[in-house]
Simulated assay, not measured.
Amino acid sequence: MISAANTRSRPVIAVVGPTGSGKSDLGVALARELGGEVINADAMQFYRGMDIGTAKISIEERRGVPHHLLDIMDVREEASVSAFQASARNLITEIRERGKYPILVGGSGLYVRAALDVLEFPGTDPAVRAGLERELEEAGLEVLRGRLRTVDPVSADRLGDGRRVVRALEVHQLTGQPFSSFMPAREYFQPAVQIGLSVERGLLHRRLAARVDQMVDRGLLAEVQTLAGRGLREGRTAGRALGYSQFLRVLDGESTVAQATEQTVVATRQFARRQLTWFRADPRITWLDWDDPELTAKAAAAILEQ
């Protein structure tokens, strides 16, 4: 364990990569090796009760390492990147003042970047947002994406779901600027180091399929049923989570468990591909093999070299 004085001069650590690559385990290992506390940067793990379907790290798996920003929201609440940024940066300061490393762990790329980078977020207008959401429901995603393409082709090509397309159109309507213009050059707001976990694609696909099967065996459908009673369907963020949206259809009689399982596997693989595209675009990330026997030691060495 290095001294507290030296720790305060060290960078913020981020463990990133695709879902199913072992980020949570490495975060704990680094915290124990270097003296740190973990800050969750997976948007779906903010939600209380969303445990099985998000592969949320258990109390036992945390091995005594403090974890922050887990189980902080009700499923009806909408996650906000700007609110996360404020909370994460406050925690980073507090953890550093305790003489420990702040360790961000998660695969939500924009959330990681919001915590690490010089990044400001434009405001919002509930009336404008509501109008765009009505259009999305009535006209469909492709119509809104086509409109976005005329004012912000970069965002239109990058954004893949209705919620983000609505947000991009809202920003343009409010500011007259494309949403993509609010993503500046990559610049850390304070010293940081990112460790990315690399998994061979075929192996990752097999791991993701096995993990979804395990989630189903552990009671994912029952978890979704419980959360449905707490307003999961009304949650703009939680209700769209991988696995949860698919298994809500089982509860509604629109799908079977087998169909929902396969749909979740496919959607998870697609999500992992988007995550890799996002993180591979950042040249500042140090990539390591997820199953390297010396993974923790190599990651710690990369951090201490900064």
Rank of each mutant, 00 (worst) to 15 (best):
T7E: 00
S9E: 10
R10L: 15
P11H: 01
S21A: 14
S24Q: 09
S24R: 02
A29F: 10
A31N: 03
R32W: 05
E33A: 13
V38Q: 09
M44H: 14
I59F: 13
E61P: 08
P66D: 02
H67M: 14
E77A: 11
A79L: 05
S80G: 11
V81R: 08
A83N: 01
Q85G: 06
S87K: 12
R89H: 03
L91H: 12
I92W: 04
I92P: 03
I95H: 03
E97Q: 13
Y101L: 11
L104D: 05
L104F: 13
L104P: 07
S108N: 07
L110D: 15
A114E: 06
A114M: 03
D117W: 07
P122Y: 04
P122Q: 05
T124A: 09
G131W: 02
G131N: 15
E135N: 08
G140V: 06
L144C: 05
G146M: 00
T150I: 04
T150G: 03
V151P: 12
L159D: 00
E170K: 15
E170H: 08
V171S: 00
L174S: 01
G176F: 01
S180T: 06
S181M: 09
R186A: 15
R186C: 14
Y188L: 04
P191F: 00
P191H: 04
V193I: 09
V193W: 01
Q194I: 11
V199R: 00
E200A: 05
A209K: 11
D217S: 09
D217V: 00
G219A: 10
L227W: 07
G231N: 06
L248N: 00
L251D: 02
E254S: 12
Q263C: 03
Q263E: 15
V265P: 00
V266R: 08
Q270T: 09
R274W: 06
T277P: 07
T277C: 11
L288T: 01
D292Y: 08
L295Q: 07
A301V: 10
I303V: 11
